[in-house]
């Protein structure tokens, strides 16, 4: 095995925050140094070794064996390297990440990839609320990179998204892309109410037109060259868009003077 592996000694009794413990940080440390590194756990801070078996050889890869829904901040602040979680993670996975790859085998809690600016997150399961969104107090959600959600996404995914790409293979919850500033989000499944509310710019790709706020205006179906371009240039969207030559273009949120669009394949 290459890289460092963290294997929880037992299910966590409180939330553990791994923010900042990224491959580029663990890489230069010896196993012993890593074991002594303190991480917040509930109301205390504990040494990593009190929570995990720390094994392997430090390099650019970090592996978390057996996830835990109380494990927050996995890959938060990552700039390079690779972080793989075999199971489920808690909140803020990949928050503020600017590079590298984060792969999560299970589900993720709230704020997955929030304020992310680069790199790639691949989530196999479902994401909680606010995936790719702006965290509390932050002005912008995901502004670059790719966030791929294999399952469903909770409410307010892509809120205040500023750029980059979010793909949701399953359903998206209420308030998708609320206040979206720019960027692209695609949803394979159904979409909850009030998607795109207050959206300024950006694109939401959908298979069927969802219920949209009053400020959205249907401009009809159009043959769009851009669809062909995106289908070829963006591998993450090829499967969804490759059959599309025409799309229904619904522009909004005009109530706020927005020029975003919902594009639905026809």
């Amino acid at each position: 095995m290459t890289g460092v592996s963290l294997k929880p000694r037992a299910p966590f009794e409180a939330r553990v925050d791994l923010s900042g413990l990224t491959p580029e940080v663990t890489g230069p440390l010896s196993l012993r140094e890593l074991e002594h590194r303190e991480v917040p756990c509930g109301g205390r801070s504990l040494k990593l070794a009190e929570l995990f078996f720390v094994e392997g050889a430090p390099d650019g890869v970090l592996l978390v064996e057996i996830g835990d829904a109380r494990l927050d901040g996995v890959g938060a602040g990552m700039t390079r390297g690779e972080l793989i979680v075999d199971g489920t993670v808690g909140a803020f996975a990949g928050r503020g990440m600017s590079g590298g790859v984060l792969r999560i085998g299970g589900d993720a809690g709230d704020f997955l990839g929030s304020e992310m600016s680069g790199g790639r997150i691949e989530l196999a399961g479902n994401a909680g609320a606010h995936a790719g969104a702006a965290g509390s107090g932050a002005r912008r959600g995901l502004s670059g990179g790719v966030l791929q959600i294999g399952g469903h996404a909770g409410p307010r995914a892509a809120e205040r998204q500023r750029g980059g790409l979010i793909t949701i293979a399953g359903d998206a919850g209420e308030g998708l892309a609320t206040g979206m500033i720019a960027g692209t989000v695609s949803v394979g499944g159904t979409i909850g109410p009030l998607a795109g509310r207050g959206m300024k710019r950006g694109t939401i790709f959908v298979n069927a037109v969802p219920e949209l706020p009053a400020g959205f205006i249907d401009t009809g179906a159009h043959e769009l060259v851009a669809l062909r371009l995106i289908a070829r240039r963006v591998p993450e969207l090829s499967a969804m868009l490759s059959g599309w030559t025409h799309a229904r273009r619904i522009v909004g949120d005009t109530l706020m003077g927005g020029q975003g669009e919902v594009l639905a394949g026809v």
Binding site: G163, G164, L165, T184, T203, H222, E223, L224, V225, A226, L229, I230, R233, V234
Partner: peptide, 17 residues
């Protein structure tokens, strides 16, 4: 629209885009 570090534009014209 920015894809990776490449940006392209769509300009509405009479014929389409």
């Amino acid at each position: 629209k920015k894809i990776g570090d490449k940006r392209f534009w769509r300009l509405p014209v009479m014929e389409g885009e």
